[in-house]
Design a binder for these strands. Structure first.
Lengths: 367, 367
DNA sequence: TTGAAAGCGCTAACAC
DNA sequence: GTGTTAGCGCTTTCAA
């Protein structure tokens, strides 16, 4: 009776060994190396464990001893829950989860609130490696990860030269998309892009801010556009580029509105993501602009909803990207690090791009 | 020169303390309790750490000592990546991630492949608690979780009485939906449901299998239907119920086909999820059946795509469910455990349900 | 097949 | 403000 009044101190491997009158090695073997002891003894150990309420070797203590956590950490730029809102991020997560599953490894989502500079969560993460997905290049969490003595793979980030990297050719892909628009005859265009840095700037973007953008992906997509249009004789510094901090359709819509208010003459609205482009389409519709007859709208990513809308975009293999990141991290071959993987993208000509209004006629009368 | 040939053994807190000629406590304090030592000393510690390449206290060793992992584990029934395919699961994950974020806690996705009986991943997980989401009640991973001496919250599972639980009234909600259909005049109906147990059974379901279903959610939804239709004088044992192992639209379509082939006279196709219902709609369309004129189709969950399709369904607060699960787990108040939370659902009458074909006419001429 | 010894790297009382 | 002591619970040579 009195016994049950005590807070029963949970049994440990040592206490179990003592109870059984065997060594700790034997108990450990009963769990980890069944072939190292007789079946009867093993039974006896396991039975006694059950009787004493011993839940098996403590995973943390085991990790300390074996120097293996059995998990990889994932660092995202956004509030953790953002990952479950953005279709491209979900695809990436799925691919990464697939790779982890194959390896029997856990996937730890590290809470890295971009608002706070608190990197303790990175220090606290008991993981065998990190995947860093699309964070600004000056993010303190990224710096904290790089200081941890575990392998790291960065994704949609600049090549650091010191850790593995997987990504796509954002610049080249956007350049190609721009060439398509230029071929159609577009010269007067506007751009809606995602956040370029950690500070909120919902408005027009100066050329300086474009160049200095801390998000690798956005910087390169813009630079691909600038290059293509500059080559076509367009003064890029005069092109309205609008930035939005939050990544959702509402941002796409309001961004499009801001661009169109500034220059109602533009013939194409180039968005740096499908989600923004979908939002831009709703704004176009709201203004009675037919796509692509009155205005061309393009995206980037190749998400399902964009496909259904017939969006002209660049499709990137988000799931493969996640899987590749996981594979890279879990492939322990240190000798070949650091590695850099570029995945292929595909320009999708949908039904949201066409010649500028009047553009076709110009051709009829052209040289 | 010779030095650099050695594998540099990474610095530890102890070696750093030795180098500095201070105690380990002081070094520890430099990281964990800045107020416990002079700023100058702290600087010296941190500088030396940087010089020696000491990455800060090892998280695993710290966890062992503090008995806190700083993470919660999530156990899902499906391949890990499944969670990123199912809209309802994504919503749950988002809510859970939100709760974790608020608490500064990591979220560890535990790889629990339902094919393998390997529960080692559960044993290996260094977490302060588990959330178990919609696994069969006889899943060995669940059993393994329950043996771990950490708090647990089960979600969309039977109330075990020993651990916290969050869920909805699946039975009552489906009963209400059935009443709606009965009120419209439906008596001859068919059902497409998700998997009922761990074994694959893509086909008709016996009443026995319905009762014995190992997935709490499915069992209760079916039982709500059975109850309502039995009350309306329908012999439930004669109602075609088709099960699908994989949860996607294709399953909904093929399940609907199987039901319709068996009894082309049914006036309503009741699906136990929106995803299945969306698939069933495509099959109806393929057969030239207009919804709801020729056939009524209903779902369950209230996902976005269903809403857009105007689906008649039961909306459940998936995000809130995840958040509630996280809150329950992270609220350390042991005194009030175990707790059970039921979230409210809402019957959504969409445009996919209507009176049975001829049902209206019957009424005109009826008594 | 089993056991003894030696830590893995750290934190938390408590004393100085 | 700083140090001493005592483990957290486990695995793993190595020897018996």
């Amino acid at each position: 009776m009195a016994r049950s009044m005590h807070v029963r101190r949970p049994a440990t491997l040592a206490s179990l060994a003592a109870e059984l009158g065997v060594s700790r090695t034997t108990v450990s073997n009963a769990y980890n190396r069944p072939d190292q002891l007789s079946p009867e003894l093993r039974r006896r150990v396991l039975d006694t464990a059950r009787r004493l309420g011993y839940p098996g070797p403590d995973p943390v203590a085991r990790s300390l001893r074996t120097r293996k956590a059995g998990a990889v950490g994932l660092l995202l730029t956004e509030n953790l829950s953002y990952a479950f809102r953005d279709p491209a991020a979900i695809g990436f997560l799925e691919g990464l989860a697939l790779a982890c599953e194959d390896a029997g490894t856990g996937l730890l989502l590290v809470p890295a609130n971009p608002e706070r500079e608190d990197v303790a969560s990175v220090h606290r993460a008991g993981v065998d490696g990190f995947v860093v997905y699309s964070v600004p290049d000056d993010d303190p969490h990224l710096a904290a990860v790089l200081e941890r003595p575990v392998p790291t793979v960065v994704c949609d980030q600049p090549d650091l030269g010191t850790v593995d990297r997987v990504g796509i050719d954002d610049r080249g892909a956007m350049y190609e998309l721009a060439k398509h628009l230029i071929g159609l005859g577009h010269r007067r265009v506007g751009v809606v892009c995602m956040r370029l840095a950690r500070d909120r700037n919902d408005g027009f973007v100066t050329p300086d801010r474009q160049h200095a953008a801390h998000f690798h992906v956005q910087r390169n997509r813009l630079s691909g556009l600038a290059e293509a249009f500059s080559e076509a004789g367009v003064d890029w510094s005069q092109v309205p580029v609008v930035e939005r901090f939050d990544h959702n359709m509402a941002s796409g819509a309001s961004g499009a509105a801001q661009v169109l208010d500034k220059d109602p003459q533009i013939t194409a609205l180039i968005c740096t993501s499908d989600v923004l482009a979908l939002g831009a389409m709703t704004e176009a519709a709201r203004r009675g602009l037919r796509v692509p007859h009155d205005i061309t709208v393009t995206g980037f990513d190749g998400i399902r909803a964009g496909e259904e809308a017939g969006l002209t975009t660049v499709r990137q293999p988000v799931l493969e990207k996640g899987r590749a990141a996981g594979k890279l991290l879990l492939d322990a071959n240190e000798r070949t690090r650091p590695r850099s993987v570029n995945l292929a993208t595909e320009l999708i000509i949908g039904k949201t791009s066409g010649p500028p209004r009047g553009g076709a006629e110009e051709r009829w009368f052209g040289p």
